[in-house]
């Protein structure tokens, strides 16, 4: 079974221009059981995409280990599907060829690829658009193609990097509902990066609230809200209030630290002068 294990992950970025190291992720441990829907929630720059890229295999942790289904991750691979912030479709291929792209890599015949793509094109509601090119699709439709592509790859793990961030509110809501339906049907494990508290609470079975600079897991919250999630319910709002408080505390602490740093810097410069 595909469970994801992040053990004591640290990531240090080397700032070559200023000749100093930047601690981006500090000792993050997370474990995602099969068929879970984990949302990584945090503000921009907290390292949530970096964590996701480590599971994907695009980045290597400075310390710690990442395993998927018990196997250490040492590069991108077809056992994990990824849906990006932009759909990243090949603009020269029609929708169905994009969905079945990895079958093209495997050398499948055209008719077989076409047939295999259809099921997932139907699943994401794109019937009738099979022969459109990406330039002819709206943002929401492109993202649906990206999801269908990840599904046809049939991985047990799907990684999603703010896939709905660029969509309008109505489309975003529809897509979230459909994603939950697909997840329930496919019984896959999803790690979903987002900066929206509402989105995390609508989608996840677990929400990991991350702090920023360095990124740490502030709190891992299990959600046992009934589906479909009612964003006006008491329970939903209790969770939301709790998370917003965490984020606010975090922000205040950061501002205090930033202020202290500025004062310290000023006094150093004062002493030097």
């Amino acid at each position: 079974m595909a469970s994801i294990e992040l053990k004591n992950i640290t990531k240090v970025f080397r700032d070559a221009k200023r000749k100093r190291d930047l601690l981006a992720i500090d000792d993050v441990s997370l474990s995602v059981e099969p068929n879970q829907f984990l949302c990584l929630l945090g503000s921009s720059g907290c390292g949530k995409s970096t964590l996701l890229n480590m599971i994907a295999g695009f980045e290597k942790p400075t310390g710690g280990s990442v395993t998927v289904g018990g196997k250490p991750v040492d590069g991108p691979g077809a056992d994990r599907g990824m849906v990006f912030q932009q759909a990243n479709l090949m603009p020269w291929l029609p929708v169905w060829e994009n969905v079945a792209f990895h079958l093209r890599l495997k050398g499948w015949r055209k008719a077989d690829r076409r047939a295999a793509a259809q099921e997932y094109i139907d699943m994401v509601g794109l019937r009738g658009f099979e022969n459109h090119f990406p330039a002819e699709l709206s943002g929401g439709m492109s993202q649906r193609v990206g999801i269908a592509r990840a599904l046809l790859l049939n991985p047990q793990v799907i990684l999603m990097d703010e896939p709905f961030a660029a969509l309008d509110a109505q489309t975003k809501m529809d897509m979230q509902e459909e994603l939950v339906a697909i997840w329930q049907k496919q019984r896959c494990t999803i790690v979903f990066v987002t900066h929206s508290v509402d989105e995390a609470l609508v989608l996840g079975t677990q929400v990991a609230v991350l702090t920023s600079r360095p990124g740490r897991v502030r709190e891992l919250i299990d959600l046992d809200l009934p589906r479909p999630r009612d964003i006006t319910s008491q329970q939903f709002n209790d969770h939301k209030r709790h998370i917003l408080n965490l984020i606010r505390e975090e922000g205040m602490q950061q501002r205090r630290e930033a202020k202290a740093e500025v004062t310290a810097e000023a006094s150093r410069q004062g002493a030097a002068a």
Binding site: P76, G77, A78, M82, N88, H102
Partner: peptide, 25 residues
């Protein structure tokens, strides 16, 4: 577009396949 190369390698493309199916087109 680097992102297309990322997407293709996520789908298990080898270097030769990247050149033929992504970089060339």
């Amino acid at each position: 577009d680097r992102n297309l190369i990322r997407a293709a390698s996520m789908m298990g493309a080898t270097e030769q396949q990247l050149l033929r199916h992504v970089v060339f087109p």
